[in-house]
Design a protein around this nucleic acid. Structure first.
Lengths: 242, 242
DNA sequence: TATTGTCAGATTGTCAACAATCTTCTTGAC
DNA sequence: GTCAAGAAGATTGTTGACAATCTGACAATA
């Protein structure tokens, strides 16, 4: 499955099905930017490349549509979804709510202590990376790892699936290593506060912090996108650029 | 598309594609209970019934899987998703967050006034229906109509899609007309408070009320499900009953 | 010059047949 | 009588071919 964070079903097949394999490889390319936003993906081309017929490719494209990575138009085939700035904002807003729910439930779970040690270790790394000036890729990676840690800890399967899908969709648009040392310092403090809230079992506080964190990263992402796209914020029609 | 609330794309096809038509009809049957939870749906059978080949049926089943109405197991085909009580609870929890976001954004929207009149009219109906003792189907229908009104007013397309999908999934499990007059009275008061919060532009209050409302209906639904299923709450393994 | 109509190529939608896998029933041994 | 192994049937997965539709270029017309 393209959603790496998706909940594994009880009867997970040992080997991915053919459509799933194709979907995974296409998903990687879309996230990596090999396939540009808006680019058309033709069934025959993909089928020839993977040496299969068009049937499995069609199913793979449906799977990617489910994850929001491609958009399928009737009689016009599939193209890589191109999100407008407004849509990126929408996704961040939903992620903020879901992360709030996730972290509140984690903070209120009785068996949260085993998570805490791993969590604290990662946040300690964060403190280190935040000090070093530089591109900060490691910093971003560590944040992503903490987020995965928390999502895996959630026992809400639907939340995992939706969250994973939304993450995958915005992954393409995240800009690495552009946060200032100052912002990072504040971010680390927030993570520390979140860990404390989880340790204390303060669900409301955990939710508040989690939400604010996503909103902050939303605003940072939007600002960068507006710069790179030339300030056409909120224009949903922009997405049709093929 | 089976999700009636989904955002219509700019280039909506005038006529549904064949897989979409099949998906719609199957969706209706699942929601109506014609296909029981856990029941297997075989490609050949559906294909024969609609006089098409198995290809479009396969795609229709993928579409339904996207909406969570069927579960596709590799080499084992599709079956109507059977939600455990824990899973129903999960979905309600997510709906609570999404409705909170939705109603907060509506309350903070500058152009919310036109919505208010329609909203107030429906809530007035609610007041009337709440008084009459009886099955209360009209009451439940009115609540559903208000909810649709609010969802349509949201300008977050992703939220609409996800919310519509989650509604569709839980629609099968709602039990009509079992709320007590007392609960209804409290519910009406909450709706009135929500309308007031929207009128006042108080986003935080609107969010709080919306969330609490879904949590309340969650608890009511769970209680009824536990009665009807014999109190095996939270047992996720129960869903494999074919 | 701009607009409309037509045509060829490309691409998606559908179908029927074959291959691979799973289910279930039967048979046999302990 | 119970359990395991095997075979027959049923069902899903995949393929290649054909039909329907779309795209873009070119020409005819106002």
């Amino acid at each position: 499955m393209p959603t790496e964070l998706a909940a594994a079903p009880d009867t997970a097949p040992l080997t991915q099905s053919l459509p799933e394999q194709i979907a995974t490889r296409l998903s990687d390319r879309i996230v990596a930017g090999t396939y540009a936003p808006g680019q058309r993906i033709m069934e025959q081309t993909v089928a020839a490349e993977f040496a299969v017929s068009r049937g499995p490719v069609r199913e793979a494209l449906r799977l990617l549509e489910k994850d929001g990575l491609v958009t399928i138009l009737p009689r016009r085939g599939a193209q890589v979804t191109n999100l407008s700035i407004a849509e990126v904002k929408e996704i961040f807003d939903i992620r903020a709510m879901l992360n709030g729910l996730r972290d509140r439930q984690i903070a209120e779970a009785p068996d949260r202590l085993q998570l805490l040690s791993a969590l604290e270790a990662e946040v300690a790394k964060l403190t280190r990376f935040a000090r070093e000036p530089g591109l900060g890729d490691e910093y971003v990676e560590t944040v992503a790892r903490i987020d995965r840690l928390l999502t895996r800890a959630s026992d809400n399967g639907r939340l995992k699936t939706i969250h994973g899908s939304l993450m995958l969709q915005t992954l393409r648009y995240r800009q690495l290593g552009l946060s200032t040392p100052q912002r990072r310092k504040q971010s680390v403090q927030n993570w520390q506060k979140l860990v404390k809230a989880i340790r204390d079992g303060d669900g409301a506080e955990a939710e508040r912090i989690a939400r604010q964190r996503v909103i902050d990263s939303r605003d940072a992402a939007i600002r960068l996108l507006q710069e790179s796209r030339g300030g056409n914020a909120g224009d949903k029609k922009t997405r049709r650029t093929a």
